[in-house]
């Protein structure tokens, strides 16, 4: 006999969740307000901070980190944000370093620009495809698989460059590094265009919706008929593409490929993870990632303009991450 008395008053959904939704909204606004307050502080105290020139300058400087953070965000979206088993690509920064070396080498070898670009993006995507295969095909934890590939990729970069700066130049690179359109530099345009395209795909097409489903609850996604493995694999290939794209920007900005690109990894992680607090679902979003990338950019810039020691920058970044995340996790619904 059905005496299943347990749950629920069905009319409560909005009611029960309204409090939570409000709290989440407050957090999101809180994060934005913190962001705005720090900007305002810089604007008032740092001479030249709030000038259009400076703002464009920061956006331009953020382009490389931004593109890479998109790659990381998408991997986390598709792989879930579980600490040990979730999606992550530790090889992303190293991959960008390798791609930069490939691009510089190809350009110096006299390859026409389209060929050099194809080789660069191809390298990035190949690394991504291998990562994806390791994660999806072999079932290796993403943390581990990309840790191993990070070593491989960094090693290959070093053998290619002998750990030296590979200077290079080409017409394309000078357009990218000094070209302007509507007073905004090419690098900034690339970030803007990438944000719009990735934002549209992730938030306005079925692809993005499905990626969130795959990362949020793989079994549910599978039950809905989605090919989970293909989606996850795709996120790693996309991350590789981002690495290739970022590599071209790196080379154009420095007119060279330099060792040490791998050190960007922590900043990329910070940008992608910090971005989650701007979302009511506490997942990475394109808007959130853009905001945190620019935030990180402005932070460094503000310190510079205030003539504060740059030694403080990473510490303040770390403290802010902790502050924002502590507040967020306080409001986050308890999950077991």
């Amino acid at each position: 006999m059905t005496m299943a008395l347990s749950p629920s008053s069905p009319e409560s959904p909005a009611g029960a969740s309204r409090g939570k939704a409000l709290a989440a909204a407050a957090i999101r606004l809180g994060a934005l307000a913190t962001f705005a307050a720090i900007m305002a502080y810089f604007a008032l105290t740092a001479r030249g901070f709030a000038t259009p020139f400076n703002i464009v300058n920061v956006i331009e400087q953020s382009a490389i980190l931004g593109i890479l953070a998109f790659g990381m965000s998408v991997v986390i979206i598709g792989g879930g944000s579980e600490v040990q088993t979730g999606g992550i690509d530790l090889s992303l920064a190293a991959n960008a370093g390798l791609c930069a070396a490939v691009f510089a080498t190809a350009t110096n070898a006299g390859l026409p620009a389209p060929m050099a670009i194809a080789a660069t993006l191809g390298t990035g995507m190949l690394v991504g495809a291998v990562n994806g295969f390791a994660v999806v095909g072999l079932g290796i934890l993403p943390l581990l698989a990309t840790l191993a590939s990070m070593n491989i990729v960094a090693g290959i970069e070093l053998t290619l460059t002998e750990n030296t700066v590979l200077s290079t130049s080409s017409p394309l690179l000078s357009v990218l590094s000094s070209g302007r359109f509507l007073g905004i530099s090419a690098l900034a345009w690339v970030l803007i265009a990438a944000s719009v395209i990735v934002g549209l795909v992730i938030h306005r097409t079925p692809v993005g919706l499905r990626l969130y489903a795959v990362g949020g609850h793989p079994e549910a996604a599978r039950a809905a008929g989605l090919n989970v493995g293909l989606h996850v694999w795709g996120t790693y290939v996309f991350a590789g593409l981002c690495a290739g794209l970022a590599a071209i920007l790196i080379v154009s900005r420095l007119s060279a490929s330099t060792p040490g690109t791998g050190e960007l990894l922590l900043s990329i992680l910070a940008a992608a993870l910090l971005g989650t607090v701007f979302s009511r679902r506490f997942v990475p979003t394109v808007g959130g990632t853009v905001l945190s990338v620019i935030f990180i950019g402005f932070l460094a810039n503000g310190f510079q303009l205030l003539h504060l020691s740059s030694y403080w920058v990473s510490g303040v970044q770390g403290a802010l991450i902790l502050l924002v995340v502590a507040v967020t996790s306080y409001a986050r619904p308890q999950e077991h």
């Binding site: 306005r204 097409t205 969130y212 949020g216 989605l226």
Partner: peptide
Amino acid sequence: FIHQERLLVPTATVAEAVFLNYELRFGPFL
């Protein structure tokens, strides 16, 4: 299949959960 386990993505909205993989779209867009 309506599975015994509630196989739904917790971070999706009701509308997204209902239409996942059969999204209503305009061209390529949701």
